[in-house]
Computed example of a mutant assay.
Amino acid sequence: MPAPKSEFEELHPCDFYTPEELFDADEMYTVYEIARLLQGLDADADIEPETENVLLDWAIPWVVENADDLVVAEPRNDDEPGYYGRKE
């Protein structure tokens, strides 16, 4: 159910990092790592699975929105996800 804006003490702009701001140029990242980076965490930060699932809700649309500026690599083996990096 929608909530009135007046119920919140503070409202922030909905600004997201660009791939250039978020990624090192020579690195590739999984969507799980992207989710952490978008929250200001280290890519390898240890987080609870429930938290990771919530962060993925932010990361997946971010990848879609920035697809023109990204490159994709297939998983190196069957038990890992794909990787994303900055398009040069």
Rank of each mutant, 00 (worst) to 15 (best):
M1Y: 02
P2W: 07
P2T: 13
P2V: 12
A3W: 07
A3Q: 13
A3L: 14
A3T: 14
A3R: 14
P4M: 04
P4C: 05
P4Q: 03
K5H: 15
S6M: 13
E7F: 12
E7N: 10
E7Q: 11
F8H: 09
F8G: 02
E10H: 15
E10L: 15
L11E: 13
L11D: 10
L11R: 13
L11A: 13
H12C: 10
H12F: 14
H12A: 12
D15Q: 11
D15N: 10
F16L: 07
F16E: 11
F16K: 05
P19H: 04
E20I: 14
E20Q: 15
E21M: 14
E21Q: 15
L22R: 06
F23W: 14
D24P: 00
D24M: 10
D24C: 10
D24G: 08
A25I: 12
E27F: 14
E27W: 13
M28A: 13
M28P: 00
M28S: 13
M28K: 07
M28Q: 08
M28C: 07
Y29L: 05
Y29R: 04
T30D: 01
V31R: 02
V31W: 02
E33V: 02
E33F: 01
E33C: 03
E33M: 02
I34T: 11
R36V: 01
R36K: 15
L37V: 02
L38T: 05
L38V: 05
Q39P: 00
Q39K: 08
G40E: 07
G40A: 11
L41P: 00
L41K: 05
L41H: 06
D42V: 06
A45N: 04
A45P: 04
A45Q: 05
A45I: 06
D46Q: 07
D46N: 08
I47Q: 05
I47M: 08
I47N: 00
E48A: 12
E48F: 04
E50N: 09
E50F: 04
E52W: 01
N53R: 08
N53E: 12
L55P: 04
L55N: 08
L56M: 12
L56P: 01
D57M: 07
W58F: 15
A59Y: 01
I60E: 01
P61M: 00
P61V: 01
V64C: 01
V64D: 00
V64T: 02
E65Y: 03
E65I: 00
E65P: 00
N66L: 01
A67P: 00
A67M: 08
A67H: 03
D69H: 14
D69A: 15
D69K: 14
L70C: 05
L70E: 02
V71P: 04
V71R: 08
E74P: 08
E74G: 04
P75R: 07
R76F: 09
N77P: 02
D78N: 09
D79L: 12
P81S: 13
P81N: 11
G82F: 03
G82V: 03
G82E: 03
Y83C: 11
Y84M: 06
G85L: 08
R86V: 13
K87T: 00
K87L: 08
K87E: 02
